[in-house]
Design a protein around this nucleic acid. Structure first.
Lengths: 227, 227
DNA sequence: TCAAAAGTGTTTTTTATACACCCATGC
DNA sequence: GCATGGGTGTATAAAAAACACTTTTGA
């Protein structure tokens, strides 16, 4: 079926990144404000073009590392958005990715320089084109991921408390997990190491800090969260 | 970020369909044999180009309906494959879909005319390019789907037995489900209607035929199969 | 009559959920 | 001393898994 390469109409192909971060107990998205019409003032995801010599993964990674100054980002493909009229500026096929990044560790100057801003996922501004839908589908995908693997390594500081991790999961699934049951479930996965330090900023008693074990134990075959 | 549309290098964009069918108790894939070098004799998925005025979904649907003579196909996006060197014939970005079709109902003459053939998923011939990986990922996606919704409406005949449905699930998950437990689980979903007819071809006693209820009860919020 | 699939029921195990209760400590 | 989040334990409910057993009938 795939013949006559030369006579085919080529397409503009872009990537859009749904960039998740976690800050002040909130799950957030990194957005850019549009400075030109149409949709001036509306916000957009972190996008870019796909070059001829790179895969869409490469493109998504390139765009995001150059923006945040981070390497070793966790990214995953979400879906292709390709309605012919989705972008008023022309026919552009966009491959959407989501990324999990540590807000504390990324390059704030760089992000500020581009006029980007972090927005709480449950209080997003109007987004251009189909970017709202993209963010929605990406969050669904993140839920899938978090229900099978323990996410947090890329979102939380290296040392975190179980309450912080639970709050992250609360945000992702938009529900309150029972503190005792969550603790039992997570610790039973044997993927965290308890440190001999305590965080006393959130409670009088203080909560133990944990880290992810170095081994790739965040890949589980069984489900960890039902939803 | 998405500026200067005019100066961007466009890409050839194709779709590839991983077409699942179910026949003689086996989960099968519809494949084409390549008649030209390179990789002559190897088999490929059902692919096609994306036209300027259509979405990738439209393209995938168009290619598959024109091949099988069927409409109302169930299709779902799998993933984009875009390594620059994935296709020796040139730089082609391919969006993969999987489809579930009823082998009995499709147009055999049409499929035969194109030299297509159904292959058991666990005994596939060598596939061209990255099509083997595509099939693999598509099966994973189908498992995801089948673990949340009751698949079978598009794969089985309109009237089927619970043993047939169980065997389909056995094929998809490549494990043996317990007959009693599977029956209980499926019937508890309340998505099937038992007919007053029996299929006596597979057993002496005969098994009741079932149909899917007309209402869209094959969308469940909870999980039906754990894996 | 007996092998084999269909169908039902029961037991056991596992997992999830709800929630009681003690701990530590800054205020 | 008490309110607050941290942490542990327990009782209950629900779900999954294992499996016993009965039915039916063609060969």
């Amino acid at each position: 079926m795939l013949q006559q390469y030369d006579f085919q109409e080529p397409h503009l192909v872009a990537i859009d990144n749904v960039v998740f971060g976690y800050e002040q107990g909130q799950l957030k998205l990194l957005l850019f404000q549009r400075t030109i019409e149409p949709s001036k003032g509306d916000w957009s995801l972190v996008g870019g073009w796909v070059n001829p010599d790179e895969s869409v993964e490469d493109a998504a990674y390139r765009v995001l590392t150059s923006l945040t100054g981070l390497s070793d980002l966790f990214m995953e493909q979400v879906e292709v958005f390709s309605k012919p009229d989705r972008d008023p500026g022309g026919r552009v096929i966009s491959v959407v990715f989501y990324a999990l990044i540590n807000i504390q560790e990324h390059n704030h100057q760089l992000v500020d320089h581009y006029g980007a801003k972090w927005w709480p996922v449950n209080d997003l501004p109007p987004l251009i084109f189909d970017h709202g839908k993209m963010a929605e589908v990406a969050l669904e995908k993140l839920r899938m991921k978090a229900s099978r693997d323990l996410v947090g390594r890329d979102l939380l500081p290296a040392e975190f408390t179980l309450t912080q991790l639970r709050n992250l999961y609360n945000c992702i699934f938009m529900k309150e997990f029972d503190p005792g049951n969550f603790r039992k479930k997570i610790l039973s996965l044997n993927a965290l190491r308890r440190l001999d330090k305590k965080d006393t900023s959130e409670s009088k008693k203080g909560a133990y800090y944990y880290t992810f074990k170095n081994i790739e134990t965040d890949q589980f075959t069984e489900r960890i969260i039902n939803f």
